[in-house]
């Protein structure tokens, strides 16, 4: 009994006659065999997150094992990353924020490496998934809220009470501030996932156009340009995610406007 797949669901959904599958690159598949993706299954997510960890290990642990006073090339890159995040935390949150520096450094290193690794051809971009970025953003949101209440007690609610505004406006502003506070994790996570998803999907769409030999050169040019932009976006989004984390942390440590 011969069984073969006659219909590709994705192709149909993308429109009649189209064989561009811009979203197929984000499909989570098991590494070994077929079947359900259970929570413990080894998938391409597992593989690329493991590669991310290995890269971070190589840069920050193996790269600095010489502990040289005059650094090697790898060590100076590691020191650059350390100094970059350290200065960011210190500048935005002040000295008392430095206690949370390892946490913010973890976020930054994970996002920046996942973004750059996702730019490799055939790679899977873990940070393009809402599930991943939502966990990152929710972790930041919950941590920051808890820190705010632990450090300031009920004074943390002063974040929503804009004391510099006229008294009549304050309740309205308080509602707006409250809503914007709870929208933070949404925009925080969707910004990162959306940027990466958009860039990768655009590259895939242009790659699909290359089927026609006439358009192919144009399409390759466009892919090159978008790829360059994506390299920039990969870093900037990691930077933005990290600096927003710092800003939220600053709000938790100093809730007064």
């Amino acid at each position: 009994m011969a069984v073969d797949t006659a219909v590709d669901h994705g192709a149909e959904a993308a429109g009649p006659g189209s064989n561009i599958h811009p979203m197929d690159q984000f499909i989570v598949t098991p590494l070994f065999g077929e079947g359900e993706v259970a929570w413990y299954t080894l998938t391409n997510v597992t593989l690329w997150m493991a590669i991310t960890v290995l890269c971070i290990f190589a840069l920050l642990v193996l790269g600095t094992r010489g502990r040289a006073i005059v650094p090697t090339r790898t060590q100076s890159v590691a020191e650059l990353a350390y100094g970059f995040v350290y200065k960011m935390v210190e500048d935005v949150t002040g000295r008392e924020g430095l206690k949370y520096f390892p946490y913010i450094m973890t976020l930054f290193m994970f996002i920046v490496f996942a973004n750059f690794l996702g730019l490799l051809p055939m790679a899977f971009t873990t940070t393009s998934h809402i599930a991943v970025t939502a966990v990152l953003a929710l972790a930041v949101f919950i941590t920051v809220t808890v820190i705010g209440f632990v450090k300031n007690g009920s004074a943390f609610l002063g974040l929503f009470w804009v004391s510099s505004a006229p008294l009549a406006l304050r309740p309205v502003l308080a509602i707006i501030e409250l809503i914007s506070y709870f929208v933070r994790p949404v925009s925080h996570s969707i910004r990162l996932a959306g940027n990466l998803m958009a860039g990768h999907a655009v590259i895939k769409v242009f790659a699909g156009f290359a089927i026609s030999a006439v358009i192919a050169p144009l399409s390759i040019l466009a892919i090159t340009a978008v790829y360059g932009l994506e390299v920039l976006v990969a870093f900037i989004q990691a930077y933005v995610f990290t600096i927003l984390t710092c800003v939220y942390l600053k709000d938790a440590l100093h809730p007064h406007h």
Partner: peptide, 30 residues
């Protein structure tokens, strides 16, 4: 669930690496 599970594992691993080995070392070198 799969992605969240592996993400948590990854973050824990990175946090362990950074806070136990990398950051104290780089801080000491600097």
């Amino acid at each position: 669930p799969n992605q969240i599970f592996w993400l948590v594992v990854t973050l824990a691993a990175i946090y362990y690496l950074l806070s136990r080995v990398a950051l104290p070392r780089i801080g000491a070198v600097l």
